[in-house]
């Protein structure tokens, strides 16, 4: 691709299916380039047709393998599938090693599949900073499904629930007891529960723990109209994927046709607006505070002022309306 090609021309090529153009737009979105903002706005306006699926779960639960098998099954139905795979950045060097492609190797030689790896780069919540812009690129370019695979999350990284139409939470057998299953947090955000690695003998226990958690929810008056199904899968023998695709179809239909779905669409929009505003504020704050930081933190470290006073001093005199 020619150097420094304008983002507007990349949009035309991306919409025509040019992988290199789609990829370059994602890089510019990730860099936060001002030049590409009108182009991203065009894509946002065209997006909104794809079924956006978030897949989350603890590290090693089998997310990448599930994405790989699920994508192959969706492809046999002729659908185009885009994948955003998020891996963590080093808190020390800022670098990363992104290895999700290793488990998605069967998906590479297929023009109906696009895979992009993204590093979190300080973003919290399990997604990368420009994950949702990358989803827009794929959505606008006509992919039927866009799957966002989060980093391996702990118990509280639930941001994906505010960005996807359908959230799949993957649980693997052998990690924790039935009390883990009734704790607050990640399990609550599932539209579909997948229990992976069901070729293993202890998988039934995990399935029944999850099911009894969901039954308990009903007993205490959870009146949500969608009841999250528990789907046992195995990428070794292919078990459960037909049921998973059926559940995805059913949930996609529920989201398109119900008031719950309309509310989710508005919540997703609201989340993106707030998130973008927060990013802008943080960027302006980081730029503006530069001179003041060292002096104030020295006073704070010497315990001459309190953290609250230090924060107030830092914020005083910063114009957050300025251009970043």
């Amino acid at each position: 691709m020619a150097k420094q090609i304008p983002s507007d021309s990349l949009v035309v090529r991306a919409l025509a299916g040019d992988n290199a153009a789609m990829a370059r737009l994602m890089s510019r979105a990730e860099a936060g380039s001002a030049e590409c903002r009108p182009a991203l706005a065009q894509l946002y306006a065209k997006a909104g047709r794809a079924h956006v699926i978030g897949i989350t779960g603890v590290p090693g639960s089998g997310k990448s393998t599930l994405v790989s098998t699920l994508t192959l099954k969706l492809r046999t139905g002729g659908k185009r599938v885009g994948i955003i795979a998020v891996d963590p950045s080093s808190p020390y060097s800022g670098g990363s090693i992104m290895g999700d492609r290793i488990r998605m190797s069967e998906l590479v030689n297929d023009e109906g599949i696009f895979i992009r790896s993204m590093a979190t780069r300080g973003a919290q919540g399990g997604m990368a900073r420009a994950s949702l812009e990358a989803v827009d690129v794929l959505d606008a370019a006509g992919f039927d499904y866009v799957i966002v695979e989060t980093v391996g999350v702990g118990q509280a990284e639930v941001e994906i629930a505010r960005a996807a139409q359908t959230v799949i939470v993957v649980s693997a057998p052998g990690l924790g007891d039935d009390i883990q299953a009734i704790k607050a947090g990640i399990l609550e955000i599932a539209d579909i529960h997948v229990v992976s690695k069901c070729d293993r003998s202890d998988a039934n226990r995990t399935v029944s723990d999850l099911k009894s958690m969901l039954t308990m929810g009903m007993a205490v008056g959870d009146d949500r109209l969608w009841r999250a199904p528990v789907v046992p899968t195995s990428s070794v023998n292919g078990q459960g994927f037909e049921q998973l695709i059926e559940c995805l179809g059913r949930h996609g239909h529920f989201m398109r046709s119900s008031e719950t779905g309309q509310i989710r669409v508005r919540k997703i929009a609201e989340f993106r607006m707030l998130k973008t505003a927060e990013d802008l504020l943080r960027q302006r704050f980081t730029n503006a505070r530069r001179g003041a930081l060292a002096a104030v933190s020295e006073q704070l470290a010497g315990r001459r002022i309190s953290p609250y006073q230090a924060a107030e001093q830092l914020l005083d005199g910063i114009n957050l309306k300025g251009t970043p």
Binding site: S90, S93, G94, G95, M98, G99, R101, I102, S117
Partner: peptide, 13 residues
């Protein structure tokens, strides 16, 4: 090494 030098590395296997 590249990760520790602050680069984003995609490894294909």
């Amino acid at each position: 090494c590249l990760r520790d030098a602050g680069m984003d590395v995609v490894y294909t296997g």
